[in-house]
């Protein structure tokens, strides 16, 4: 089993519903977020090209945050989801320094927090909150090992890229273009 997410950058309008859905679902404290929107513009005026990327933890296969965690609090759960066990976390910040995607932050309660792919929903067979709430259906979640999953189907006929592949982390967020 290998959970992954595909983000269709052609469909994303950058409304940030995914961000708000995550904050509501996971009771993310005010002023913090586990997912966010990046707006990229390139080209030469007046021929500019703009895309939106809905970003979150990449749930890397070769996760540097898990490797450098001194207590084993950061770990890889079933399906490749990278999680933090809160009462094992000492808040040293090694994982935050090791993440090329800046996907982690220090929760006001002291432990380090991040996207969990809504594992509490996924365990019940549901989608992560951000996926379910997306008004343009640009987020696709599922098991890469299952050819009939939403994410496998989305990746099948499309070109995609991942963020900072040169970091060697084997990220599992696929951006469709």
């Amino acid at each position: 089993m290998r959970y992954a997410m595909a983000i269709d950058t052609n469909k994303c309008v950058g409304c940030a519903d995914c961000v708000v859905a995550c904050q509501t679902e996971n009771l993310v404290p005010h002023g913090y977020c586990r997912d966010w929107i990046v707006e990229k513009v390139d080209g030469t005026y007046p021929n500019l090209d703009m895309i939106f990327q809905s970003e979150r933890c990449n749930h890397c296969d070769n996760a540097p945050c898990v490797r450098c965690c001194p207590t084993g609090s950061s770990h890889i759960a079933e399906g490749g989801i990278v999680l933090v066990t809160h009462d094992e976390c000492i808040g040293c910040g090694a994982c935050i320094e090791s993440c090329p995607y800046d996907a982690r932050y220090v929760h006001p309660d002291g432990y380090v927090d991040k996207c969990t792919f809504c594992i509490h929903r996924v365990d019940k067979g549901e989608n992560p909150a951000c996926v379910d709430v997306c008004p343009t259906y640009c987020l696709h979640f599922g098991d890469l090992d299952d050819p009939n999953s939403d994410v496998s189907k989305a990746l099948k006929d499309r070109n995609w890229y991942v963020l900072a592949p040169e970091a060697g982390t084997d990220p599992q967020l696929y951006f469709l273009r």
């Binding site: 002023g31 977020c33 929107i37 990046v38 707006e39």
Partner: peptide
Amino acid sequence: EELIVSGKHLPKI
């Protein structure tokens, strides 16, 4: 021109 704007403008993060 290349411009990258992040929606993560959250001063607490």
